[in-house]
């Protein structure tokens, strides 16, 4: 499962980033590192990008980018 598959309000734990190079480094620099909890807060009115809460701040990213982040679902609300 990837971060793009989580629905609004669902949480997960990051397993790995399945892309390399600049995009991976950028994601990691923003706190998207394995073992971190992440929760999908919102979806933009036009369906993309999404807003997630990670390391106690709000991060937005496109679904295309979220698809590179593998997660395991923890719980949904």
């Amino acid at each position: 499962m990837t971060l793009a598959d989580l629905k609004t309000g669902q949480s997960g734990k990051i397993l790995k980033i399945s892309v390399s190079g600049a995009l991976k480094r950028r994601l990691m620099d923003m706190g998207v590192v394995p073992g971190t909890d992440v929760r999908v807060e919102k979806v933009a009115p036009l369906g993309d990008p999404i807003e997630v809460r990670i390391k106690s701040y709000a991060l937005s990213l496109r679904r295309g980018e979220a698809r590179h982040i593998e997660v395991e679902g923890t719980h949904s609300s």
């Binding site: 600049a22 995009l23 701040y57 709000a58 937005s60 990213l61 496109r62 980018e65």
Partner: peptide, 9 residues
Amino acid sequence: PVFIMELPP
């Protein structure tokens, strides 16, 4: 380019 952006308070 990527769209990985903080939504600041």
